[in-house]
């Protein structure tokens, strides 16, 4: 649609601007403010320059958290994207069963994040949980509160459980937009199932898949509640992801300066990725001629 140029449209976006300035800009300025100052208490602050940033970037603890975060995100993407595509391809295309599948699949997406944590916390316990109990009965030693590997497996399976449906639903929406004629043409050409997927379905899904991957990337990068409820970042620090570490620092120890510098670096990473996301989406919109 051709848009008209109209500077008065600013008045329409003004309420949003004021509100978001209050809920985002002011807090962010506080963070910037703390990140360059130091204090000995009593609300007396003095200039610390880039000291906190240097400290943050050199801190082994934070770099480890970043490494764990990157690993977590990579693993869940590697599982959720192919699995989501597989599920989308397996879904009924129309009718009652399509609705049933949509509703059941969306269910985990709508559960409060701490309840997701609670569900898996209970489910994995050896004494009262179905999963933990079954594994124990099979003679597999599994304890997510003691063993770091078990803790990791638990939070990854939990995230796959929680978010694969998002990838599947988006991929499904992409598949629905393929006209039946494409399949008929493929049939006439006697294309194999793989070729139908590779040359018809995958290209048609590429737009929504990009969105799905980027959403999953960003949301998993800021994950806090679910692993916090299940493992609390433990055992030790083994599942302490970026947000868990940051909250510990900012609200637990009240280390304002370092926490603020950490926040800004964290935020910049997300900002960079958001920009990539935005560019990709605007280009997709253009390609589809919207």
């Amino acid at each position: 649609m051709e848009k008209t140029r109209n500077e008065k449209a600013w008045f329409l976006v003004l309420p949003v601007l004021v509100l978001v300035a209050f809920s985002a800009v002011i807090p962010l300025m506080t963070v910037v403010n703390y990140s360059v100052q130091d204090t000995f208490g009593n609300n007396v602050f003095f200039w610390a320059g880039l000291e906190w940033f240097k400290e943050t970037l050199a801190s082994e603890r934070i770099l480890n958290a970043l490494g764990r975060q990157a690993f977590f995100t990579a693993v869940i993407l590697a599982i959720e994207v192919p699995l989501g595509i597989l599920v989308a391809l397996s879904m009924p295309k129309r009718g009652v069963w399509a609705s049933v599948c949509l509703v059941l699949m969306a269910l985990p997406l709508l559960i409060p994040w701490n309840v997701v944590g609670t569900i898996w916390q209970i489910f994995g316990r050896v004494d009262i949980g179905l999963l933990g109990h079954t594994l124990a009965a099979m003679g597999i030693e599994y304890n997510y509160t003691q063993n770091a590997l078990d803790a990791w497996v638990t939070i990854i399976v939990m995230d796959v459980w929680h978010w694969t449906s998002l990838v599947a639903l988006l991929a499904y929406a992409g598949l629905q937009s393929i006209p039946e004629a494409y399949y008929q043409a493929a049939k006439i050409d006697q294309a194999s199932r793989w070729k139908v997927f590779r040359y018809i379905e995958l290209p048609k899904m590429s737009g929504v898949l990009t969105i799905a991957i980027l959403l999953r990337f960003m949301d998993s990068f800021k994950i806090y509640t679910e692993p916090f409820v299940v493992t609390g970042g433990g055992p030790g620090n083994s599942t302490t992801l970026l947000s868990i570490d940051l909250v510990k620092m900012a609200l637990g120890q009240f280390d304002l300066g370092p926490a603020a510098a950490f926040s800004i670096i964290y935020f910049l990473i997300i900002l960079l990725v958001s920009w990539v996301f935005f560019t990709v989406m605007t280009n997709l919109d253009k390609k589809e001629g919207k």
Binding site: V16, V20, A24, I26, P27, L28, T30, V31, M218, F221, K222, Y224, L242, S243, I244, L246, V247, A250, L251, L256, A259, S263, Y266, F267, I270, L271, V273, S274, W275, F277, F278
Partner: peptide, 17 residues
């Protein structure tokens, strides 16, 4: 775009401020 960055911002960054 700026609106989008707020959707992407980690709540942990905003908790203390």
């Amino acid at each position: 775009f700026w609106l989008l960055t707020n959707r992407m911002a980690p709540p942990a960054v905003f908790a203390l401020p």
